[in-house]
């Protein structure tokens, strides 16, 4: 959605380049298993699509439509996310191996990667409607996993504590936004916050 939004509007205004950089890093470090294991054609295709879209978005923001990127409001300090997340992925993981640590890093990083975007909206006090749709579906995507994990726990005995805890954190971070989306955007209003 976000790649599409920038492509058709020719502007990167209101989109956090930092969040998009973090997502590119998330998908790169998580999908290194493209080289080591094959799950399904769907799985492989989606991984490639996510990686391609995240890099395309970063390219659009920082290269093609750089002049329209609102860097002055994109001031979240990403090192405050990357450093603790990097440390935690070394300490709490399933297996102390390079691929597994990078996978863990991507899971932890994804859970907080939206913070620069939410921070940006809180600074500017508003967001375009298509941006809010993007954020809603990005949040919904992980929230639906919570339901899926309960299902898989009961019917497949599957339980991945790292993914579940990070998924819960990620969903909680979106809750405030979900509230604004339902109470404002779905009622036809633009998302704008009181000053």
């Amino acid at each position: 959605i976000v790649t599409f939004k920038i492509t058709i509007s020719f502007i990167a205004l209101g989109i956090s380049g930092k969040s998009q950089l973090l997502f590119a890093l998330v998908f790169t470090t998580r999908y290194l298993d493209l080289f080591t294991s094959f799950i399904s054609l769907y799985n492989t295709s989606m991984k490639l699509i996510y990686i391609a879209c995240s890099y395309a978005t970063v390219y659009l923001i920082y290269m093609k439509f750089k002049a329209t990127y609102d860097g002055n409001h994109d001031t979240f300090r990403v090192e405050f996310l990357i450093v603790p997340v990097g440390g935690l992925s070394f300490l709490v993981n399933h297996d102390f191996s390079p691929l597994e640590i990078l996978w863990t890093f991507s899971i932890y990083l994804e859970s907080v990667a939206i913070l620069p975007q939410l921070f940006m909206i809180s600074k500017t006090g508003e967001a375009e409607t298509i941006t809010t749709h993007y954020l809603f579906f990005l949040g919904l995507y992980r929230a639906l996993y919570l339901v899926n994990w309960i299902w898989r726990y009961y019917f497949e005995g599957f339980f991945d504590l790292i993914a579940v805890v990070a998924g819960v954190v990620q969903t909680v971070l979106y809750c405030d936004f979900f509230y604004l989306y339902v109470t404002k955007v779905l009622k036809g209003k633009k998302l704008s916050l009181p000053a």
Partner: peptide, 10 residues
């Protein structure tokens, strides 16, 4: 038993 090192989720 699920092999947790083969991550099948996106």
């Amino acid at each position: 038993e699920y092999n947790v090192y083969q991550h099948d989720e996106l």
